[in-house]
Design a protein around this nucleic acid. Structure first.
Lengths: 224, 224
DNA sequence: ACTGATAGAAATGTCGGACATTATTGTCAG
DNA sequence: CTGACAATAATGTCCGACATTTCTATCAGT
């Protein structure tokens, strides 16, 4: 049978990866709500894959922590409890703090000073205070960039698994102007510490920054 | 067909888990060397599972980082490069350090002071200096125990994935008496810091301890 | 009407076979 | 000895079947 010709030029060579990516997208966009059950028979009807392949996709998604698999009870979109969220942000505090420290250590080798200076300018401007979407759109790249500067791929992929799956919109709503102001200030301080090559301070500031985000996340409504 | 009745009372309910556990055991005991290819057809002959189930086991092992899966090239036991090892110990330095800090913070709530005091006595005794096996057998539980005291299950499972898969024996051989002496001293210092409820110091000491182990691990022969 | 047992339906876990696709190997002409 | 090419081996995917387990709706009894 002709293998799907749809995935033109994408890196997803296996059908299971395609299916996993599609389900991931549906989860992140809210089509699949946290706690919702994923019935194999239903998804087979929606995705061009067989049961075996779908089950493989389930395993990959479960490995990424996006869904949960229970024996003889199938798959469901992962539902966060407040305790889970606390643990998650504790991990991020630890890892991103360390990433900031490593980034500060390696700042000389990197020509990414330029990039950091550009980011700094962004967080000094008013856009990130006025517009919550602009704020968010610049927030993720900044954190990712600092993590990338740390130069540890394991660290990078570990942190990728710690992004909140389906609650981003609800988190966004919690960021009022006051919150955005504090956040922007912290970002600038972190950038300065990294640029100055001060690992200890960079780590300390990043930890405080992530901890604050974690406390804010606890206010997300509708958590189990 | 009658499902295998062998797994009496173990928590491994799914056949895929049984197969994964068996393969994991073979890797850790050295029957399967790093880099060795795992042919589906061969393993089907050795394990009482079908191809589908075996492939599921592969996915789980890959998620744990024990094997690597390449498209159209199957599975092979993960081979560590020195760079991989460096990243791995960097992660452990970060996470275990943080775990020590958390443990020190929560020491009052835990009645595990007793446990720590017992561990302290062990590391003051001569057994852990004289016998490399005794050293190792007490090392893992101590680290695990401190991580458990941190009370973050994510942290716990993240660290479980960072254990060296098949190189433990070779690492063990690097621990001569001098190394063991330093290690024991560091353990005692860490325990004292946790008992004293000093998170900052506990983290600092644990980081130094893990970093030292990482530098030692770089001496493991036969790495890619 | 409510509760609990029970039979039926629904969904998952596992198996075996089949075939397409791709990687590896071995052969042969030059 | 090298490069093209055919043969082999191994993986990726699909399909259908059945056992096992969970879920559900019905029904008897208090």
């Amino acid at each position: 049978m002709k293998l799907r010709e749809s995935n033109q030029a994408d890196g997803l060579r296996k059908a299971a990866d395609v299916a996993a990516a599609e389900i991931r997208r549906q989860i992140q966009e809210g089509f699949l709500a946290p706690g919702q059950r994923l019935i194999e028979a239903e998804l087979i009807g929606q995705l061009p894959v067989s049961r075996s392949t779908l089950r493989e996709a389930f395993l990959k998604l479960a490995a990424d922590g996006l869904i949960e698999l229970q024996h003889q009870r199938g798959a469901c979109v992962r539902r966060m409890t407040r305790a889970d969220l606390a643990e998650l942000f504790q991990m991020r505090e630890c890892l991103e703090g360390y990433a900031a420290a490593l980034a500060a250590q390696r700042i000389k080798q990197h020509s990414s000073r330029v990039w950091l200076l550009e980011a700094r300018a962004v967080w000094l401007a008013d856009d990130v205070l006025d517009n919550e979407l602009t704020h968010m759109e610049n927030n993720v790249p900044l954190h990712d960039g600092i993590v990338a500067m740390a130069g540890n791929k394991r660290l990078q992929s570990a942190l990728k698994l710690l992004e909140l799956p389906g609650y981003r919109l609800q988190f966004l709503r919690l960021l009022d102007r006051a919150q955005r102001t504090v956040s922007a200030r912290q970002h600038i301080d972190i950038i300065d510490a990294v640029l100055a090559g001060k690992p200890v301070q960079a780590e300390k500031l990043m930890r405080a920054h992530v901890r604050r985000a974690g406390e804010l996340a606890q206010l997300i409504p509708g958590l189990a």
